[in-house]
């Protein structure tokens, strides 16, 4: 395996692990507000790493110019915070309970 192929493999493994961590956060953390942190950050970065891996593979191993994946990364990095914002607004609107150790809960009631 060449250096580039190792780079592709490394980025793919890192990306998949980030994606897995996002899902672990979703299952493990105690309340909705903390769960939201996993998917918005870890999953987005994981997908960024996978996009880089795919770009490295197609441009350097296969030798064909392919930048289309960049659009996926761009789109996700723009939309991920918006999705998170809408979800947490909906959660605040429905007055979901937060974990008991959360401080400053009264601020959320405004």
């Amino acid at each position: 395996m060449s250096m580039i192929e190792w780079l592709v493999a490394l980025l793919a493994v890192a990306g998949s692990l980030f994606v897995l961590m996002g899902s672990v956060a979703l299952v493990k953390l105690p309340d909705f507000y903390t769960r939201l942190h996993g998917p918005t950050k870890a999953t987005t970065l994981g997908l960024g790493a996978l996009v880089l891996s795919s770009m490295a593979y197609f441009n350097f191993v296969k030798g064909e110019l392919s930048l289309q994946q960049l659009l996926i990364a761009l789109f996700l990095f723009i939309t991920a915070p918006i999705t998170a914002h809408m979800l947490i607004k909906a959660a605040l609107h429905l007055k979901l309970d937060s974990a008991e150790q959360t401080s400053g809960q009264q601020k959320a009631d405004l």
Binding site: K28, P30, H37, K41, A42, Q101, S103, A108
Partner: peptide, 26 residues
Amino acid sequence: DIIVANLQVIRLVLGPNKKLRPAFVM
């Protein structure tokens, strides 16, 4: 910062839930 923040978040996620100090801040 996104990369640094992710490593932090993963460390927090893998740690015990009791040690988390979630908060709302204005």
